[in-house]
Design a protein around this nucleic acid. Structure first.
Length: 576
DNA sequence: CGGAGCGGCGCG
DNA sequence: AAAGCGCGCCGCTCCG
């Protein structure tokens, strides 16, 4: 197939379905004017995209719909504008002066599409097999929505456009990481399971060590038939044995001194591992030496990613050693030290807090400056300040923080006040919290009546405080997510610029797109894992560090603060 | 029988 | 010691 170059001056190229088995690409200039329109059979799309100039930004309805089959076909795009994700941001953003047209376009409010099924079905079959996304995929709908979004974001701050770009880059990365997968060593996983659970049992049976623990628990309870998996029945059995706990949670049970406690806690830990990340989990989620979680960019209100299936965001640290690089490959494992407090320092321009953080562990910096007696106190206090703690150790420590860092604390306190009053708050780049539902306002209204019942007043107050803690945390968690997205996007770009290694050094299970090059393999809020050929490990590590600095400058300019990374080049992802 | 609700626990 | 934010998933119980 011959492919014409992109037209002169093209900046955007909108992609959409255009009739039976066909797609169209519409090239737009920077002013949004249509420069050229091309229609082609759907099957020609991967080759066409692979041949098109790389600095264009692809505009499409939904990355799960368009990009999954492209990646499966070995095609990467450098940049995109994901209409579904950007719609969700623009619709609610306080930085958009008139979102009426966007709010009226409810067909773009669909949630994330179904899990990518990994197949290339889109280009082989008619119809939309794997996806339940309700957003429109047609070319005309895309053009109309893109125009709406350009108009909505045209007059706003550059920050908002940066957010749209970062969110869209995340959509690409989520698809690519699912395709590449996390290298997963079944033998190491088995060793861990056998150590903690015993040998793998026959179907329907419990592993030997779990059976032994259950027997010990029943013996200690003096009840040979006690049910251990039903909270109400277990609680009654505990009461009969003299353990008068109010719940069966482990931190409450740990309070009691009774022979049943130790085996019971071990039993709970073992059955948790078995059901969450046991042999059945591996057969479903890492059957071929790769763990392929489904990431859901923008899946959390704050802008954090969520995940769907496989529990990607809950992988227990216990199992980290099973994350093992391929032979001849290594990991760059990096996490940001105290991401959220640093973000708070930067966005509040609190030079005192930034000073405590610069060049050091932030919590230790607080101790060194006499703000907190111990590192642990500093951590508890800072988390309490960002989460809205009012009681306990954390609540007691917060006032000292207010004295030492009035600007930083002023920012989160103001966000909390806004939330308590029913208002919305925004992140640094302009993602805005969802407003409280109508019932919330109704409750507050009732409580304000002259003859309101005490119970209503109490409920309304509690509900207002809940709202305040949510908005307090939203600004920090959401801005941290923005920093992380910018970091991630820049890491991706830098890694893509590394030369491919020889076919003999390839990691075939990482896919055609990633198997010969350092690539992102995992992302979890403030941590990334890059899977890299050994010979590129130093370059990949430099990319990760440089991208962190670039993200900091991109968001916060020359504000004097560094975002420190704990970074290691290793063969597994276990604790350093 | 399936789905909602919930306790519990894993992650940041 | 287990409150104060955001999640997903498991097993059990309850309900229609």
């Amino acid at each position: 197939m011959t492919v014409a170059a992109a037209p002169e001056g093209a900046v955007w190229v909108v992609l959409g379905e255009d009739g039976e088995g066909a797609v169209s690409t519409v090239f737009l200039g920077s002013d949004g004017a249509v420069l050229e329109r091309r229609r082609m059979p759907r099957a020609d799309l991967p080759a066409s995209i692979a041949a098109t100039v790389t600095d264009l930004r692809w505009v499409w309805s939904d990355a799960s719909h368009w990009y999954v089959p492209l990646v499966a076909a070995g095609v990467r795009v450098a940049r995109c504008h994901d209409l579904r994700l950007c719609h969700a941001i623009l619709r609610d953003s306080a930085a958009v002066s008139d979102a009426a047209a966007l709010r009226a376009a409810g067909e773009w409010d669909a949630p994330a599409a179904a899990a990518p099924d990994g197949g290339a079905a889109l280009f082989e079959l008619e119809g939309d097999t794997g996806s339940t996304a309700a957003v429109p995929h047609g070319i005309e709908a895309a053009l109309v929505e893109f125009t709406r979004q350009r108009e909505a974001s045209a007059n706003g701050a550059g920050a908002l456009r940066l957010l749209l770009a970062a969110e869209s880059a995340g959509a690409l990365i989520a698809v690519e990481m699912n395709a590449a997968g996390v290298p997963w060593d079944a033998d190491v996983h088995d060793d861990i399971l056998r150590e903690l659970l015993g040998d793998r049992p026959a179907p329907g049976r419990l592993p030997s060590r779990v059976e032994e623990l259950a027997a010990k628990v029943r013996a200690a309870l003096g009840d040979a038939t006690a049910s251990l998996d039903s909270q109400p029945r277990l609680l009654r059995a505990l009461h009969r044995a003299g353990v008068l706990a109010a719940s069966t949670s482990k931190w409450e049970l740990a309070e009691y001194d009774h022979p049943v406690i130790e085996p019971l806690l071990a039993y709970k830990k073992a059955t948790r591992l078995l059901s969450a990340n046991g042999w059945a989990w591996r057969e479903e989620w890492a059957p071929d030496g790769r763990f392929r979680p489904v990431y859901v960019p923008g899946g959390v209100v704050t802008g954090r990613w969520a995940s769907s299936g496989g529990g990607a965001l809950q992988l227990p640290r216990q199992l980290r050693p099973a994350v093992r690089a391929d032979p001849g490959w290594a990991f760059v494992v990096a996490d940001v030290a105290q991401l959220e407090p640093r973000v708070l320092a930067a966005m509040s321009r609190d030079t005192a807090l930034a000073g405590s953080a610069r060049g050091t562990d932030l919590y230790q910096g607080m101790v060194d400056r006499g703000v907190m007696p111990t590192r642990q106190d500093a951590k508890i206090a800072m988390l309490g300040a960002m989460y809205g703690a009012t009681t306990g150790d954390s609540g007691r420590l917060v006032p000292a923080l207010r004295r030492a860092y009035p600007k930083a604390m002023g920012l989160v306190d103001a966000a909390a006040r806004t939330g308590e009053e029913g208002g919305v708050v925004s992140t640094w780049l302009g993602r805005t919290s969802p407003p409280p539902p109508p019932e919330w306002h109704a409750l507050q209204g009732r409580a304000g009546d002259q003859d309101a019942a005490d119970a209503d007043r109490t409920r309304a107050q509690r509900s207002a405080r809940d709202r305040g803690r949510f908005t307090r945390n939203f600004v920090v968690q959401g801005t941290a997510a923005e920093w992380a997205l910018c970091w991630l996007a820049d890491v991706r770009t830098r890694l893509a610029a590394l030369p491919p290694v020889s076919p003999a050094q390839a990691a075939p299970r990482s896919g055609i797109l990633h198997g010969r090059q350092a690539h992102l393999a995992f992302f979890l809020h403030d941590e990334i894992i890059v899977h890299t050929p050994l010979e590129q490990a130093d370059a990949a590590a430099a990319a990760v560090r440089d991208a962190a600095d670039a993200a900091t400058r991109l968001l916060f300019g020359e504000f004097p603060l560094d975002f420190r990374l704990d970074l290691h080049i290793r063969e597994d992802a276990g604790k350093a």
